[in-house]
């Protein structure tokens, strides 16, 4: 089985680093030259092509059929659901948690503000807990929100928790656990046998 008709879209950052390790472990040639700023690498027989993009754009590339497969965090898939992709494997790297954090390890008393870049996940979580919240949408530096008085709580992603500790914040609850997921275009998944072969190599 060759991969010269397969392209994988990979999210920048931790996912890309984890994908490189996975590629090496499975004996797949890694297409990206560290000196290069290229974002697109065409497929070859020995390895799939690769397309590098922002995490939230990966499902779009896959749904539109530009990439056959994609690698992106489950947190991104939950926050930006796309009905035109299928999740085909948990790749068990880039593990992290989406958590509720604040200055004290205490569930909010009454209506409160939550600063987050995970508006959908946060809203769904507090809806399940029947707790009234005002969501403050931020795209980064969430740890600042409780420090500067913008919102007493945040919903954010944590890996080791060191960034939270640096800002004197503590975890109150884990909302979801996340890891890198292999996603597929449904049409390509069901018509290109090479995709299942690649899944089996990446997820033995």
């Amino acid at each position: 089985m060759t991969f010269d008709n397969v392209t994988v879209a990979v999210a920048k950052g931790r996912i890309l680093e984890g994908a490189e390790t996975l590629w090496e472990q499975q004996g797949l040639p890694w297409p990206i030259d560290k000196e290069s700023r290229k974002l697109w690498f065409s497929p070859e027989a020995a390895r799939p092509g690769m397309l590098i993009a922002r995490a939230r754009d990966i499902p779009t590339f896959v749904a539109m059929g530009i990439a056959d497969l994609g690698i992106v965090g489950l947190d991104v898939l939950e926050e930006h659901p796309n009905a035109q992709i299928i999740q085909v494997a948990d790749l068990h790297f880039a593990t992290c948690r989406v958590v509720l954090a604040g200055k004290e390890r205490q569930w909010p008393a009454g209506p409160t503000r939550i600063a987050t870049k995970y508006q959908r996940i946060a809203q769904a979580y507090f809806a399940v807990h029947h707790h009234p919240v005002e969501i403050v949408p931020l795209s980064g530096s969430l740890e600042l929100a409780p420090v500067i008085g913008l919102a007493p709580y945040i919903v954010d992603i944590v890996d080791t928790g060191s960034t939270l500790r640096q800002h004197q914040l503590v975890e109150i609850a884990t909302i979801m656990e996340s890891s890198a997921r292999l996603i597929a275009n449904p049409s390509h998944w069901r018509t290109k046998p090479a995709l299942e072969q690649l899944r089996n190599r990446l997820n033995p």
């Binding site: 059929g65 049409s187 390509h188």
Partner: peptide, 28 residues
């Protein structure tokens, strides 16, 4: 191709479901 993970887009399907795909296009 036969694939029982294909369940159709709508909850009213009960038995046979099918999708005709265009090769290499990625759309049904």
């Amino acid at each position: 191709r036969w694939d029982l993970s294909l369940t159709g887009n709508w909850p009213y399907y009960t038995d046979l479901v099918f999708s005709l795909y265009l090769k290499d296009i990625g759309q049904p």
